[in-house]
Design a protein around this nucleic acid. Structure first.
Length: 554
RNA sequence: UGACCUAUGGUGUAACGGUAGCACUACAGAUUUUGGUUCUGUUUGUUAAGGUUCGAAUCCUUAUAGGUCAACCA
């Protein structure tokens, strides 16, 4: 019984457990999720959210939601609200109120003054071009700015002037005095404050200087006493700077840990490219069901549970990765299979007449809501002489492995009778217009003791009772798994835009039970796929989005 | 002519000097009133070359490959 469960840990968990063992941070685990409010959250953020919130949960700690709002040019309150909603929807709770880096502008300003007074920062009047030039290249060291040796007094005065707004944008910046010859470009006297006479979404016009990422993020972590600051690999070169500021300022030693961001086939996570897709009209908005945004995936019918499972199964490591879209789809099928009620909807209808069923009569049959969940109950399904079935469930000349309708074949109508196909009627152009069949009255579902067998089972909707609905069949936005991989060849993501990523079917027929469905409800359309009720639905016309199709058989 | 990160089946991810495992995919079979689900099974892997060791995916060396870094963005 004393067997230790050999659960394998990812490398971040190993670090945390090591810290816990050593008594670091007094056994406390505090993480943070620091989005910049300049766009919508996407699947890559979902991964970061699951890691930061998930780890804090696991080790009895908490997570702060902190908006990294140090660039007023691009940031807006609209995004703040959308981000909060998406994090909540994913199922996570942050500690206390949402926080903002802008809450700390006063403190950050004091940190900068402190740095200047310790001789570790200076005001530089060089232009952006000059600074870039003096930085050197990754293979060539940079050179010192002529302003690097200003006196502390002069720096204090100039920085104060910057704050007071007497210098125009771009005329000077505050730089950390680190090492212009460092092989790490970030350490070559990074800019830490710039002048921007701009209105901030929270601090209004109080400030005309704003800290740069490197002088806001780590310091905010420290102010909030974050123990483990988890970010993606691209920030690995920032870590020496992160630690340098903490050391020089003598503040709480938060620790930055980097993991590989998650890439998913057929999805892109560049905010700029996502914005372009919206602006260029390739999609209808940030929440278009084809978008890899949280809001898009929600509208597509992905459940929060399935996204969490997906992020979990994708794992955490430091190597570049491209996760198969199969895994995502497998996760959402697994979840929806348990929770989605079954319904019959005919997407491409063709009429079938049961010639030996009494004309003018009908009956009510019962269908299981979800055979995977006995407690889900049943619902009524009207049956009649005339029905709609899927046009590809009939084939005049069928191959031997075809289990559906073909002249002479027996087929079970789901939840109803076994029928025998007798013939089909075509119009003058050779198009199938109607199928004829007879039914076996003693084969009714649930009370069939006839011994008659049928190879296949198909879904159907009573022609008299069925209701029109709109189906939006979505598929991958791009024709190749990694549409950004060809930029060297001069190709853009638009060269791989999948024109068939949305196929609208306006003459689908649903069973009447569905008339009461509400936006956001999930269903499995029998033998077809998982669908979610779209917010565009009205009382008289329901709209369904394809979340994911069922696995295809033969 | 730099620094840093990484390298395990098709895709992800474990194995922490001692039997290369798990998930997804693919394929085969069983069950099935969804060609779904479920169940069973199969194929496929340690980048390369040296070294240390009784023993190396794991440690060392070198090579190779991929990624990242030169925004007054984050």
């Amino acid at each position: 019984m004393s067997e230790v469960s050999k659960e394998s840990l990812n490398f971040i968990e190993e670090i945390i457990e090591q810290d816990l063992k050593e008594g670091k941070y007094n056994g406390r685990v505090q993480t943070r999720f620091p989005p910049e409010p300049n766009g919508y959250l996407h699947i890559g953020h979902a991964k970061a959210i699951c890691i930061s919130f998930g780890l804090a949960n696991k080790y009895g700690g908490h997570t702060n939601l902190r908006f990294d709002d140090t660039n007023p040019t691009t940031e807006e309150t609209e995004f703040v609200n959308a981000i909060k909603r998406d994090v909540k929807w994913l199922g996570f709770e942050w500690q206390n109120d949402a926080l903002f880096a802008s809450n700390y502008f006063d403190q950050l300003y004091q940190f900068a003054v402190d740095l200047i007074k310790k001789g570790f920062a200076y005001v530089d009047n060089s232009t952006a071009e000059e600074i870039a030039l003096m930085k050197g290249t990754p293979t060539k060291p940079g050179i010192d700015s002529p302003y690097r040796s200003r006196t502390i007094e002069e720096n204090v005065l100039l920085f104060e002037e910057m704050k007071n707004g007497i210098h125009p944008d771009g005329s000077m910046v505050l730089r950390a005095k680190v090492d212009m010859a460092s092989p790490n470009m970030l350490m070559r006297d990074p800019l830490i404050y710039r002048i921007k006479h701009e209105h901030h979404h929270r601090t209004g016009d109080k400030w005309c200087i704003y800290p740069m990422y490197d002088f806001a993020h780590g310091q905010s972590d420290s102010i909030e006493q974050i123990t483990h600051s988890l970010c993606s690999l691209e920030f690995i070169h920032h870590r020496p700077l992160y630690d340098w500021f903490i050391e020089k300022l003598g503040i709480f030693p938060s620790k930055q840990i980097e993991f590989a961001r998650m890439n998913v086939e057929y999805m892109i996570t560049s905010k700029r490219k996502l914005l372009n897709l919206v602006n260029e009209g390739y999609v209808t908005g940030w929440d278009d069901p084809r978008m890899p945004t949280i809001s898009g995936m929600r509208r597509r019918g992905y459940t929060a549970e399935s996204i969490r499972t997906f992020c979990d199964k994708a794992g955490v490591a430091k190597r570049d990765n491209m996760i198969s879209i199969n895994l995502l789809e497998s996760c959402v099928r697994e979840d929806l299979n348990k929770v989605a009620n079954r319904a019959m909807v005919v997407l491409n209808p063709v009429k079938i007449t049961i010639t030996n069923y009494p004309e003018g009569s009908s009956e009510i049959l019962k269908g299981e809501n979800n055979s995977e969940n006995p407690e889900s109950g049943h619902h009524d399904i009207p049956f009649g002489r005339s029905l709609w079935i899927e046009s590809d469930d009939y084939l005049e000349e069928a191959p031997k492995k075809y289990f559906r309708l073909t002249p002479g074949a027996n087929v079970r109508l789901k939840n109803a009778y076994i029928i025998n196909c007798t013939s089909a009627i075509y119009d003058e152009n050779g198009n199938l217009t109607e199928i004829l069949a007879t039914y076996y009255p003693n084969t009714r579902s649930g009370s069939d003791e006839s011994g008659i067998s049928a190879k296949g089972t198909i879904h159907w909707v009573s022609a008299e009772h069925g209701l029109a609905c709109e189906i939006r069949d979505y598929s991958r936005l791009f024709t190749v798994p990694n549409p950004t991989a060809f930029e060297d060849e001069g190709k853009t993501i638009y060269d791989f835009y999948n024109k068939a990523s949305l196929i609208v079917k306006k003459d689908a027929i649903m069973e009447p039970w569905l008339a009461n469905c509400k936006p956001g409800e999930h269903f499995q359309f029998l033998r077809k796929g998982y669908y979610v009720v779209d917010e565009d639905s009205s009382e008289k016309m329901k709209v369904f989005n394809l979340t994911v199709s069922l696995k295809e058989g033969w």
